[in-house]
Amino acid sequence: MNTTPSVFGAVHLGYIVIETDRFTDWRRFGTDAIGMHHDAVDTGLMRFRLDDQQCRFLLRRGPAEDVVATGWHVDDHTSFEQIEARIRAHGVPVTGGTAEEAALRGVERLLRFPGPKGITQEIYTTPRIASEPLRMLASGWVTGDYGMGHIAITSTKPTQLRSYFNNVLDARLTDYIDETISGVKLKIRFLRVNERHHSIAIAAVRGLPIDPIRTRVQHLNIQAATLDDVAQSYQRVHELGFDMALSVGQHTNDKELSYYARTPSGFEWEVGWNPVIIDESTWQPSTHQGISIWGHTPVGQTIIDKLDQFRHGGLSLARREDTVTALSGTGIHDD
């Protein structure tokens, strides 16, 4: 239960940190396929831009092949200090970012603290504006007041994860989706921290404590400025030989039209267009049946892929999922 004033609306998904050893493939994926702006920092670091901010994706060399941190832009120092106070009040360690770390992310006043599934959470103020103009194939990306997209996570403890983001960021439940894939029943919770339909999605297998996804994240999303940008990047992904996970389709809940490509690190990357914007005065959570109105069909999935998912699900039974217990006390009851 938060005792400080709500920070809802003052928080926006700002950047993602990815650890990978596949720099050559990632550069081709990010610039030539998806269409983002690329900046080489040094031999072990590179960045992608979506807009005038210096960094939206920071890639660093390492073995994880996964997302290792998410950065949340906090509008003002008062809200920043409220979030910091909440974390410290629960006895969770908070570490200040160094000047070099803040510079790499293109931000000021950087703090980090533990997050669910080992994904470090970072908060910052005042993103720095790049001096160089954008050089990218896309005409633009939708960021602004709603942040830069969303992150989707699979979990064996979805209620605790929802509580974590409620306790830290005052996240609100937007809606649910019930879906059955290959006989496995999933429930997906969609959380928002501003008027973007969701900045966090949490998927769980109903009735079974398994996590079928190897990576900490299932997918990332960015929002294209135009439908042409979606279509053209979809074509480039195919032509450059990157794997497509799901074909073009439209979601039931946020109505976003999108496709899912598979990144060089293995998790998926959704490029979407035109999701609904939440009206806080009228919105009520509801449950949708199935993730898509049309499309989003699996592309090139083999029986080996399915068996691999079952193998990872089995391995997850023996693996303890970290929810940062001090910050994920429930106070929330859902199905």
Results as ranks from 00 to 15, higher is better:
Ile222Tyr: 03
Asp175His: 11
Lys117Glu: 11
Phe113Lys: 02
Gly290Asn: 10
Ser328Cys: 04
Met136Gly: 04
Asp25Ser: 11
Phe8Ser: 10
Arg56Pro: 06
Lys157Val: 10
Cys55His: 02
His12Asp: 11
His333Asn: 14
Gln223Glu: 15
Asp66Leu: 05
Thr325Phe: 09
His251Asn: 04
Glu84Trp: 10
Asp229Tyr: 00
Ser328Glu: 06
Gly62Gln: 08
Ala89Lys: 13
Arg196Tyr: 12
Ile222Pro: 06
Arg216Met: 07
Leu220Arg: 04
Val237Arg: 01
Asp52Lys: 10
Phe57Pro: 01
Arg49Pro: 01
Asp254Tyr: 03
Thr154Ser: 13
Gly9Phe: 13
Ile177His: 00
Gly147Phe: 05
Leu220Val: 12
Glu270Thr: 13
Leu58Ile: 07
Val67Trp: 03
Gln232Trp: 02
Asp32Gly: 02
Asp42Ile: 10
Gln235Cys: 05
Phe165His: 14
Lys187His: 14
Ile213Gln: 13
Ala201Gln: 04
Phe165Tyr: 15
Leu317Lys: 04
Arg105His: 09
Glu280Asn: 12
His288Glu: 14
Gln235Glu: 14
Gly149Val: 07
Leu246Asp: 09
Gln121Phe: 05
Pro116Glu: 09
Gly149Phe: 04
Leu169Thr: 01
Arg105Cys: 15
Tyr124Cys: 15
Gly106Trp: 00
Arg109Met: 08
Ile278Ser: 07
His12Cys: 12
Arg86Met: 11
Tyr234Asn: 10
Thr287Lys: 11
Thr154Tyr: 08
His197Val: 08
Trp72Val: 08
Thr126Ala: 13
Asp52Thr: 12
Asn2Pro: 03
Asp25Arg: 04
Ala245Cys: 06
Val17Gly: 02
Val299Lys: 05
Arg105Asn: 08
Asp229Thr: 06
Phe29Asp: 04
Asp21Leu: 11
Leu59Lys: 00
Gln54Ser: 10
Thr287Ala: 13
Gly147Cys: 06
Pro63Ser: 14
Asp254Cys: 05
Pro275Phe: 05
Val184Glu: 05
Ala89Gln: 14
Trp273Gln: 05
Ser79Gly: 07
Ala224Ser: 14
Gly44Ser: 14
Gly14Arg: 03
Asp145Phe: 06
Ala10Pro: 01
Asp228Ala: 14
Met1Arg: 12
Ala64Asp: 13
Ile123Phe: 03
Ile119Pro: 02
Val184Arg: 07
Pro209Leu: 06
Ile213Thr: 14
Val217Gln: 03
Ile202Met: 07
Ile181Gly: 02
Lys255Pro: 04
Val74Cys: 06
Ala326Pro: 03
Gln53Cys: 05
Lys306Asn: 11
Glu270Tyr: 05
Phe23Gly: 01
Thr70Lys: 01
Phe242Gly: 04
Lys306Ile: 15
Phe57Cys: 02
Lys255Ile: 09
Ile177Glu: 01
Ile18Lys: 03
Ile291Gly: 15
Val17Tyr: 00
Glu122Gly: 00
Leu110His: 03
